[in-house]
Computed example of a mutant assay.
Amino acid sequence: MVKSKNIPEDYPSDLPKRNISEFLAEKKAESFCEESQSNLIIAADTTVLVEGKILEKPVDSLDARRMLKELSGKYHEVITGVCLLHKDKKISFSDTTKVYFRDLSDAEIEHYVETYKPFDKAGSYGIQEWIGLVGITGIEGSYFNVMGLPIHRVYECLKEFFK
Rank of each mutant, 00 (worst) to 15 (best):
W130F: 08
S94F: 14
P58R: 15
D120I: 14
K121E: 13
F23E: 01
L24G: 08
K74I: 08
L62D: 14
Y143L: 06
L40E: 10
L104Y: 10
L68S: 10
E56A: 06
K53H: 06
H76A: 07
I41M: 05
D106W: 01
S72V: 09
T96S: 15
V48S: 01
E140L: 11
E26G: 11
E22H: 03
S31N: 01
N19F: 05
E77T: 12
E56L: 07
E35C: 07
S105I: 03
E129Q: 11
I20D: 02
P118Q: 15
A44I: 03
V113T: 12
E129K: 00
V48Y: 01
N39M: 06
E56M: 07
S94I: 02
F93G: 11
T97I: 05
I54S: 05
K98E: 11
K90F: 04
S72K: 10
P118E: 11
P58L: 11
F144N: 09
H86D: 02
E26N: 08
L62G: 10
F32P: 05
G141W: 02
K87M: 12
S72R: 05
A29N: 05
L71I: 14
G132V: 09
S124T: 14
I54C: 06
V48C: 07
S38T: 14
L85Y: 04
S142C: 14
Q37F: 13
E129T: 03
T137L: 06
C83H: 06
A122E: 06
A107L: 14
I20F: 00
V78E: 00
E22L: 03
T115E: 15
G52D: 11
R102M: 04
E30K: 15
H111C: 04
I41G: 04
K121N: 08
E56Q: 10
E30M: 11
I79R: 01
D60I: 06
H111L: 11
A25P: 02
D106K: 03
V113D: 07
